[in-house]
């Protein structure tokens, strides 16, 4: 059985990207200010959709649009340090069951098998932002490992370490998990349409809790879908014209 084919059949005319955008917007309900890092079109669109409901602010690194820009490079970190950023997104070449993320490289540091770009702001923002959503579309054992090779940013901290922030949820191409910071453990919250719990287990290298009944991830309503395809598609074209064109057919020169 092909999981991808099952998922496509169960999704109807809803694209996977649209489902993920909708899921992210729900996870960030009520946020006053969500920041989006580089190379994050789906999180960016999810944050914009959430803000279109809550009236909150979205800061998008790389955007030229004044409403989504920061005052230079430092302000985002200062704002996060003061608690002025409610939501942020992190990812990883590896993510483990304690929500540790590795953006640095696979194998023995520093001269490992694979070198990725680096930790970027993760080692700071993971501590400071209350709702960090871990987002990685590829859901495989290559990504979701028992233990990361390098902790670019830790999922949990010792008692006594100042840490208002941390992982709120994990969103992948297969499912949504929540993260309990006290227990330092993920729980499966929902599987995307056409995906089974077994499939999630088979593709995850770490243990996680599975409740007796696991719901299917809600598809976006017709109204939400319309918003995504018009308002959000147009907005995310800056700074992601290629994404907006590929997924929503926004013409490239329409990106302001």
């Amino acid at each position: 059985m092909s999981g991808a084919a099952d998922m496509a059949a169960a999704m109807g005319d809803v694209k996977r990207e649209e489902l993920l955008i909708s899921v992210i917007s729900e996870l960030l309900a009520g946020a006053r200010h969500v920041a989006v890092g580089a190379l994050s079109p789906i999180p960016g669109a999810g944050a914009l959709l959430g803000a279109s409901r809550s009236g909150g602010r979205v800061t998008i690194i790389g955007s030229d649009l004044p409403a989504h820009r920061m005052d230079g490079g430092v302000e985002l970190f200062d704002m996060a340090a003061q608690g002025r950023v409610d939501g942020f997104f992190l990812s990883g070449g590896q993510i483990d069951g304690q929500a540790n993320i590795n953006l640095t490289g696979a194998g023995d540091y520093p001269r490992g098998d694979v070198r990725w770009s680096g930790a970027f702001g993760s080692a700071f923002l993971y501590f400071q932002v209350p709702k960090v959503i871990l987002f990685r579309e590829e859901h495989t054992r290559r990504v979701f490992v028992p233990k990361v090779d390098f902790i670019s940013a830790p999922g949990a901290s010792e008692p006594g370490v100042f840490r208002p922030g941390g992982a709120h949820a994990l969103v992948t191409g297969l499912c949504v998990m929540s993260f309990d910071r006290q227990r330092v453990r993920f729980t499966l919250k929902s599987v995307h349409p056409g995906v089974t719990v077994e499939e999630v287990r088979d593709n995850t290298g770490f243990d996680f809790d599975v409740p007796e009944s696991v719901p299917v991830t809600d598809l976006p309503s017709a109204e939400t879908l319309a918003t995504i395809r018009t308002e959000i598609a147009a907005k995310i074209a800056n700074p992601y014209p290629e994404f907006a064109e590929r997924v929503f057919g926004v013409p490239r020169d329409a990106a302001a």
């Binding site: 640095t104 700071f124 390098f150």
Partner: peptide, 28 residues
């Protein structure tokens, strides 16, 4: 990590030997 570089340069700009920063503890 990004804000640590800013912090180091801000200390440099002020002519002080170091500056504190939150987070980072427990990372490799």
């Amino acid at each position: 990590t990004c804000p640590a570089v800013y912090t180091g340069l801000q200390a440099g700009e002020k002519g002080i030997p170091f500056m504190p920063i939150r987070g980072i503890i427990g990372s490799d």
